[in-house]
Amino acid sequence: MRRVTTLILLAASASALRAAGTVRVVTKDPTGLAVPDAVAYVVALDAPVPVQPPAEPVAITQHDQMFDPYVTPVVVGTSVVFPNRDNVQHHVYSVSPAKKFEIPLYKGESTAAIVFDHPGPVTLGCNIHDWMVAYVFVLSTPYFAKTGADGAADITGLPPGRYRLEVWHPRLAGKVGRELTIAESGDTTQVVSVTLRPDRRIRRAPDGGSSDYK
């Protein structure tokens, strides 16, 4: 059975005129529930906007044998570090076309930073723990935001102009996108719908150290 979720993006309109506009995106599935961890981003259509990777590396930690955060949107060229805060070793890897790498078994804060230098989705895994999965979405636009638990995301600092709004999610089925124009006068409201594939993440293995027999 394939569960289909429709994500509705609501770009709320703002009444006040600003120099830089904001697009508020609210994601909902067909039943009206919020969909977190979706990356909403806009691509300028009039002229390419250069991206500036952050000076400090972004961290995706391993804690309690889970990646945190689950989805990390970054711009091209961003360095990501993978601090291991568990007392077991992890072996982080990716075989995704946008970034293939591996950090063989290690433990602790200090690891080499991985530079994500190609746009596209990158799936992270751990060779030791099958259930560990996380995504890095590498963007070539500086305008993006990730939906929170309430399914809302605000893309801010948009100069007036024409853009293409797109949404990405690990379980996104098909491409979702539309053009929108940010006016001088203020914030813009846009509505976009997407479909999600069923969630097929596997369960984590039972804690081997647990001995609370009943």
Binding site: S94, V95, S96, L124, G125, D130, W131, V133, D199
Partner: peptide, 9 residues
Amino acid sequence: IYAPPPEIV
């Protein structure tokens, strides 16, 4: 072949 599940490579 997953890398990792549910990503099929």
